[in-house]
Simulated scan of single mutants.
Amino acid sequence: AELVEIFQWQTEDESRQLSADKLEHAGQEVGDILMYLLLMCSELGIDMEQALLTKLADNERRFAR
């Protein structure tokens, strides 16, 4: 939720610059999310890299239209 809040705050006014503290905090939040996703994929037997590649290919096809 904090990461979404930071993103929304940043995109509402693109002239705003994230402070070094906010940027570092956002990086920590992303790291936490990625770690959780890795653990979840491992528990579920999902190949995270393949899932990501599949999603990227789907997005490319959708936006190529």
Rank of each mutant, 00 (worst) to 15 (best):
A1M: 15
A1V: 15
A1C: 13
E2D: 07
L3S: 06
L3D: 00
E5D: 10
E5N: 08
E5W: 14
E5M: 06
I6C: 00
I6S: 02
I6L: 02
I6R: 00
I6N: 01
I6Y: 01
F7C: 14
F7P: 05
F7Q: 10
F7N: 06
F7T: 10
W9G: 03
Q10M: 10
T11N: 12
T11I: 07
D13A: 03
D13V: 04
E14G: 05
E14T: 12
S15T: 15
S15D: 03
S15Q: 05
L18T: 04
S19C: 03
S19T: 06
S19K: 03
D21I: 08
K22I: 12
K22N: 01
K22V: 07
L23V: 07
L23I: 06
E24T: 13
E24H: 12
E24D: 11
E24N: 13
E24M: 14
H25Y: 13
H25C: 04
H25N: 05
H25I: 07
A26N: 01
G27A: 06
G27W: 04
Q28E: 08
Q28W: 15
E29G: 07
V30S: 02
V30Y: 05
V30I: 15
G31M: 04
G31Y: 02
D32E: 06
D32P: 00
D32N: 09
I33D: 03
I33C: 01
I33N: 03
I33H: 02
L34N: 04
M35R: 11
Y36R: 10
Y36F: 13
Y36N: 04
Y36Q: 04
Y36D: 10
L37I: 08
L37C: 02
L37W: 08
L37M: 07
L38S: 09
L38I: 10
L39F: 13
L39C: 08
L39H: 12
L39M: 11
L39I: 10
L39T: 12
M40C: 06
M40N: 07
M40K: 12
C41D: 01
C41S: 09
E43C: 09
E43R: 09
E43K: 13
E43G: 09
L44Q: 09
L44M: 14
L44W: 15
G45C: 00
I46R: 01
I46P: 01
I46H: 00
D47C: 06
D47S: 03
D47F: 06
E49F: 12
E49Y: 15
E49K: 15
E49M: 12
E49W: 14
Q50W: 06
A51C: 05
A51T: 01
L52D: 06
L52N: 07
L52W: 13
L52P: 00
L53E: 06
T54Y: 07
K55C: 05
L56Y: 09
L56V: 14
D58H: 13
D58W: 07
N59Y: 15
N59G: 07
N59K: 15
E60P: 10
E60A: 08
E60V: 15
R61I: 10
R61P: 02
R62Q: 11
F63E: 05
R65P: 05
